[in-house]
């Protein structure tokens, strides 16, 4: 098992996450897709760090985790607030910015 497999796995995970975001309507599920994409990125970063033998990628992965944690908090707060006002967690119902 070479490092390449990890990169491929990261790509597969990212694709699954992206597909989830694009296909699913439920905001929570979409959110989970986003988390999957972030973690796939982390995996890719760590793998590349390992490949190149420097720690920058690992440090960056930590940053991503921190930002993701903050993002989860804010994202969930937004979803809950939308659910309270519109009684729906579907992302397709939230289209007030239509041109």
């Amino acid at each position: 098992m070479t490092l390449t497999h990890y990169v491929v796995l990261a790509a597969i995970l990212f694709s699954i996450g992206a597909t989830t975001v694009l296909v699913r309507r439920n905001a929570i599920i979409v959110f989970m897709g986003v988390e999957l994409m972030l973690n796939a990125t982390n995996l890719a970063l760590v793998t590349f760090s390992r490949m190149h033998g420097n720690l920058t990628g690992q440090v960056l992965a930590f940053f991503v985790m921190v930002v993701a944690a903050a993002e989860v908090v804010i994202g969930l707060a937004i979803i809950i607030s939308i659910f309270r006002t519109r009684r729906s967690a579907s992302v397709d119902d939230v289209n007030l910015l239509k041109g």
Binding site: V21, L22, V91, D92, L97, K98, G99
Partner: peptide
């Protein structure tokens, strides 16, 4: 013309970005 692109659907924006 530009207005038609702005559907308001988050998912279509995401698809465009992807």
């Amino acid at each position: 013309l530009a207005r038609k692109v702005q559907t308001g659907h988050v998912r279509s924006y995401a698809a465009t970005m992807t």
